[in-house]
């Protein structure tokens, strides 16, 4: 490593010590905000996972005319498979429907009516990109136009609610991410301002002896990245602890992949870098 780089790293660390209180405040704030963000991301990811799972199990019930014979039902099934957005098609005969009714309601329609009133139907699941309120409505509309289809039943209202709430969660995430990120960037920039102000003489001497702009700016960039990185590391550790804690008590509840736990650390480095650049641009005129 060149002297130049050693000097920059040493000054970066010394800078943290010089503006000790401000650095500590920044690191703590970055840690707290990124921890909250990390936990929020873990929860959001898992909420999304549950929503997706729930959506994947929701199906369209396509009831057919009672008059259709088996050839016509077979042809209809072919047509249903070709409808855009359809993933799986499962046929439920009148007999199967009757047995399902008996299982679910504990009563036998044959006893009450003397005949099976249930029509044959298809249970249709949509492809992932159609698992939204609008997507499922489009598929339902297309199926309704097919000859032989009597009625299409699905839980449109439920889909609408699920869609709305998952959108709210995502939007909250995005807003939180922006607010947290921006405030942390400003904090890092402000801490650097204090360091830069206390170092004006050194900076002037650097210029005097012919230090390049890059050489002068580098220790402050390193200092900013360190602040963000340390805060982010704490954030990642807490998020990991949170996830492990939940996992110990409810092993099946959360699913977490490493990037999610590392996200506070990565964001910490990024915001430290951005904050330092902002601080340098605003307060260091070299």
């Amino acid at each position: 490593m060149s002297m130049n780089l050693i000097y920059s790293f040493r000054e970066g660390f010394v800078g943290l010590r010089r503006a000790r209180l401000a650095s500590l405040l920044t690191i703590s704030t970055v840690a707290v905000t990124l921890t909250l963000l990390g936990i929020f991301l873990v929860l959001t990811f898992n909420i999304q996972r549950v929503v997706e799972h729930f959506k994947s199990r929701m199906a369209l019930e396509v009831f057919l005319d009672n008059s259709l014979n088996s050839d016509e039902i077979e042809k209809l099934e072919e047509r249903l498979r070709k409808v855009e957005g359809v993933d799986t098609v499962v046929f439920i005969s009148r007999q199967e429907a009757l047995e399902q009714f008996r299982r679910e309601f504990g009563e036998d329609p044959l006893d009450l009516l003397g005949e099976n009133p249930l029509p044959p139907s298809f249970q249709i699941k949509c492809k992932q990109e159609f698992r939204s309120h609008q997507g499922i409505e489009t598929v339902a509309r297309d199926i309704e136009k097919i000859e032989g289809v009597d009625e299409v039943v699905y839980r449109g209202q439920l889909f609408r609610i699920v869609d709305r709430y998952s959108r709210i969660v995502l939007l909250t995430d995005a807003i939180l991410l922006c607010v947290v990120f921006l405030s942390a960037v400003l904090l890092v920039a402000n801490t650097l301002r204090l360091t830069i102000l206390s170092q004006m003489k050194t900076i002037h001497i650097m210029e005097l002896v012919g230090a390049t702009k890059r050489f002068i700016r580098r220790p402050y960039t390193i200092q900013g990245v360190l602040q963000g990185g340390i805060g982010g590391t704490i954030g990642s550790l807490v998020v990991w602890g949170f996830e492990e804690g939940i996992r110990l008590r409810f092993p099946q509840l959360l699913e977490v992949f490493p990037l999610l736990i590392l996200s506070p650390l990565l964001l910490g480095f990024l915001l430290g870098f951005l904050g330092s650049q902002l601080g340098l641009r605003r307060f260091l005129k070299v």
Binding site: M3, N4, Y7, I205, V209, G210, A211, F215
Partner: peptide, 13 residues
């Protein structure tokens, strides 16, 4: 300092 700032190797400094 004047040499560090200009990237001179340690031995020469």
């Amino acid at each position: 300092f004047a040499l560090w700032a200009t990237g001179v190797p340690r031995k020469r400094i």
